[in-house]
């Protein structure tokens, strides 16, 4: 039955999905002309972190998957690009959830790991498709940038959490 709670959750998730899409858009609009493809701030991860702490893995995965799919359809980037972003998102979310569940680490390490895993997932897809030594050449730089961006998103998420007064979503 479509009860109130269902509608509430649906609305929250829909809002968060659009929010993360906006984040994606903002960061690509101000993209730094760095010589390495794939270096992104990962601002959308702020939403993922929020969901992980306040909702659980399923919700975070759903929103990320929706974001990837919608972005791909809206901007016509193609199936291959979709696989690329999905693999990074899934690997990163699952990893972050597992680390979070141990209860022993703060949001900073969790988000750093998430950033690293996100880029690692993309590197894996690239390795299995276009392949080549290029992957090994770019890997350390991409993983490093993932780690650094993870730390930055953690700081942003913390700022959000400090003012967030609502309860858990699930």
């Amino acid at each position: 039955m479509r009860n109130r709670d269902y509608i509430r959750r649906l609305t929250v998730y829909a809002l968060l999905t659009s929010l993360s899409m906006i984040f994606s858009y903002i960061e690509s609009a101000v993209a730094l002309p760095l010589p390495v493809p794939g270096i992104k701030l990962g601002l959308a991860n702020i939403v993922s972190l929020f969901l992980l702490y306040n909702g659980g893995l399923a919700g975070a995965l759903a929103v990320s998957a929706a974001r990837c799919a919608l972005t791909s359809f809206l901007f016509g980037t193609g199936l291959w690009q979709l696989a690329f972003s999905l693999s990074g998102a899934v690997l990163s979310l699952v990893g972050m959830y597992l680390i979070m569940k141990t209860g022993r680490f703060s949001i900073f390490l969790i988000s750093m790991a998430g950033g690293i895993l996100h880029n690692a997932g993309q590197l894996l897809v690239a390795f299995f498709t276009i392949g080549g030594a290029a992957i090994g050449y770019y890997a350390p730089v991409l993983l490093l940038s993932g780690a650094v961006c993870g730390l930055i998103t953690a700081a942003c998420a913390r700022a959000v959490f400090k003012v967030y007064k609502g309860g858990r979503i699930e």
């Binding site: 703060s106 949001i107 390490l109 490093l144 780690a147 650094v148 730390l151 959490f161």
Partner: peptide, 21 residues
Amino acid sequence: EKRLPPKREIVIIIAVLALLG
């Protein structure tokens, strides 16, 4: 969870960054 990370964790974070760097 809102606290800043403990020293031990900061060390881990720095180590990972240094390694990747």
